[in-house]
């Protein structure tokens, strides 16, 4: 699986309230509608800056705070194809994989706003096409790759009927 897209940068400790505020998330299961409010409290208008396939690149502890699965769902729905971060909060990371959103833990200091990246999931390699640099990332545990490949945990269980480690 190879993904190509442009970078949007975020800082450290971006919490799930910032990704999608509680003001909106309790009212609807319509992720398309919710995704228009993505990052509204810290970066109003961000939704309009996203092109299909773009990446979010952030510092430590991305997705900390509440367990809301609406957070990875609105990111996915907004057109973002992967989140790259130095580290992830654990519930958010699990939720990403469960809804089929690629989350990659890697060093992100040298990636800048608007850089164009190409990610090869199988090889664990990120090519920074703008800066002509190559980054490697740690492979996921086997069960997470299987869930991701199935398109998320719901299609995984629909097909397999049980967990298979």
């Amino acid at each position: 699986m190879i993904l190509k897209g442009k970078v949007h940068k975020f800082g450290e400790d971006v919490n799930t309230d910032y990704i999608i505020s509680g003001r909106y998330k309790f009212k609807s299961l319509n992720m398309k509608e919710l995704s228009t409010h993505i990052f509204e409290d810290i970066r109003p208008g961000f939704f309009k800056e996203i092109s299909q396939g773009d990446f979010i690149v952030a510092g430590e502890n991305f997705g900390c705070g509440s367990s809301r699965e609406q957070a990875p769902l609105v990111i996915k729905e907004s057109g973002i194809s992967a989140v790259l971060s130095k580290s992830f909060a654990r519930i958010f990371f699990r939720n990403c994989i469960n809804v089929g959103l690629l989350a990659i833990e890697c060093s992100t200091e040298k990636i800048e706003l608007s850089d164009v990246l190409e990610i090869n999931l199988e090889e664990g390699i990120i090519k920074n096409l703008t800066r002509k640099k190559i980054l490697k990332f740690k492979k996921l545990p086997g069960i997470m790759i299987q869930i991701l490949k199935a398109g998320g945990l719901a299609p995984y269980l629909k097909k397999k009927k049980k967990f298979d480690v």
């Binding site: 367990s67 809301r68 699965e69 519930i91 699990r94 939720n95 469960n98 809804v99 545990p141 069960i143 998320g152 945990l153 719901a154 269980l157 049980k162 967990f163 480690v165």
Partner: peptide, 20 residues
């Protein structure tokens, strides 16, 4: 342990969950 909605669905479905 706090988890997300799809993990809850998997728990409802199987009575189990995978853990690290």
């Amino acid at each position: 342990i706090g988890i997300g909605s799809t993990d809850i669905a998997a728990g409802l479905y199987t009575g189990k969950l995978w853990f690290k």
